[in-house]
Computed example of a mutant assay.
Amino acid sequence: MSMSTIWHGVLPAITTPFDADLAIDHAFVAQHVRWLIDNGCNGIIPCGSLGEGATLSFDEKVALIRTCVEAAAGRVPVIPGIAALSTDEAVRLARASADAGCGGLMVLPPYVYSSDWREMKAHVAAVMSATTLPCMLYNNPPAYKTDFSAAQVAELAAEHGNLQAVKESSGDSRRVTALVALLGARVRVGVGLDDMVCEGVAAGAEFWVAGTVNALPRESVIQFELAKAGRWDEAQALYRWHLPLLRLDTVVKFVQLIKLIQQEAGMGNERVRPPRLELVGAERDEALAVIRKALREKPVV
C-alpha cells in the first residue's frame, strides 16, 4: 500500500481564539493558520483538546474547519479532531469535514463514556468508515481512559485501509517502539506530547502533533527537524531551552498555559471558555515567570 505523505513533520493542534464575547475569532484563526504554515508546519489540526473542542458546538466546529481549509488554501492538509459524545455525531462531523475539503481526520475514542475494546473499536470504526479520508487514530490513555494497544491498532489497520497513522500520547516511548516494530511498514507513528518529542523521534516517530508550536512554530519545526536528522547534540541544546515550555502542554491547564504563551509571544490572547477560567494570582505569576524567561532566552534559529 502506498503511504500517504500527510503524516510527517510538525502538525499543530491549534488553539481556538475567542473574542471578548467568547465567540470564535475567525479572522485571527485565518491569520494564525497562515503564520504556522509560513513557519514550516505541515498540517493544521483544529477541534482537538487544545482547541477546546468539547466547548464548541457542532456548527461552530464546522465553521472553524471551513475557515482553516480556506486559510490553508491547499498548502497543507487540515486534519480536524473528530470527538463527540455520541458515535452518530462523530460520524456526522467526519462527513462534514470531508465536505469542507479536509485532507485527513484525527479520530478520537468515545468522549466521556470509556469502555471496553469492543465498544471503542465500534466507535472509531464507524468514524473511519464514514469517509475515504486518511485517518490518524489518537491514543491518549491519561486523558480519555481508553488505551489502544499496538495489537489493537494492527487489527483496526487490517480492516480499515484509510487508517494510516497513530498519534501516541501515552507518555511511554516504548509504545512508539512497539507500534513501529509491529506496524512501521503500514502505519505511521507520531508523538503526541510536547515534552516527548526527542524521545518519540528516537523511537521511530515520523511526525509530531504539537501544542506550544502555536506560539513558537519556527523553533518547534527546527527542534523536530534536528531530531529527525539525528543531529542530537543540536537537538538537545534546543530541547533544554524548550523543555520548561513544552512541559506546560502536559498538565491539566495546558490550554490556558499555551494561550498565555501565545499572548506573551504576541500571537493570540489568553481567553478561554468556561468551565476553563483564565489563570490568576500566584499560578499565573509562576507561569508567566517560566514563559518570560524562556522567551528572553530564546535562541536564534
Rank of each mutant, 00 (worst) to 15 (best):
I14M: 15
A122P: 04
T15N: 14
G161A: 07
V124D: 08
E206A: 11
A154I: 04
E168D: 06
S129Q: 11
W241M: 02
L226Q: 11
V166A: 10
E52T: 07
G204Y: 04
V255N: 08
Q263L: 10
Y113C: 10
E264Y: 06
V166Q: 11
W7Y: 07
H8E: 14
T87H: 09
D249E: 15
W7C: 02
M3Y: 04
Q152A: 13
A94H: 10
I291R: 00
R92S: 14
R247V: 06
L295H: 05
I6A: 10
C198N: 02
E60A: 00
V127N: 05
N139T: 09
N140G: 08
V62K: 02
L133D: 11
Q236W: 11
L260C: 08
V221D: 13
N140F: 15
K121W: 09
P80G: 04
R92N: 14
C68S: 01
A210M: 00
P110I: 01
Y239W: 15
P141M: 09
K298I: 07
E286H: 07
F224E: 13
D172S: 04
T250G: 08
V62M: 05
A205P: 01
V33R: 00
E199L: 02
E199R: 02
I82H: 09
Q164E: 15
E286G: 05
G40S: 12
G104I: 12
V124G: 02
G48T: 05
D172K: 03
I222T: 15
C135F: 08
K293Y: 07
A122N: 09
G161T: 01
R174A: 14
V29D: 11
Q236E: 14
L163Q: 09
T5P: 06
G74I: 00
A154V: 03
I14R: 09
R240Y: 12
G81M: 12
I82V: 15
A13L: 12
R240L: 13
D194M: 02
I258N: 15
R118Q: 15
V166Y: 10
H8P: 03
R273N: 08
S114D: 13
L163F: 03
D21R: 14
V301S: 08
G104S: 13
V290N: 07
Q31A: 13
R34G: 08
T55I: 06
A130D: 06
E219A: 14
V197E: 00
C102K: 04
R271H: 14
A72L: 00
E270L: 07
A13V: 14
A20G: 06
P80K: 02
D21G: 09
S49H: 08
S149L: 12
A126E: 12
K167S: 04
E234G: 10
V280K: 01
S86A: 13
K167G: 06
S97M: 07
N162P: 06
A181L: 05
T15V: 15
A287N: 01
A126V: 07
I261K: 03
Q236F: 12
G204M: 04
R66N: 03
L243P: 05
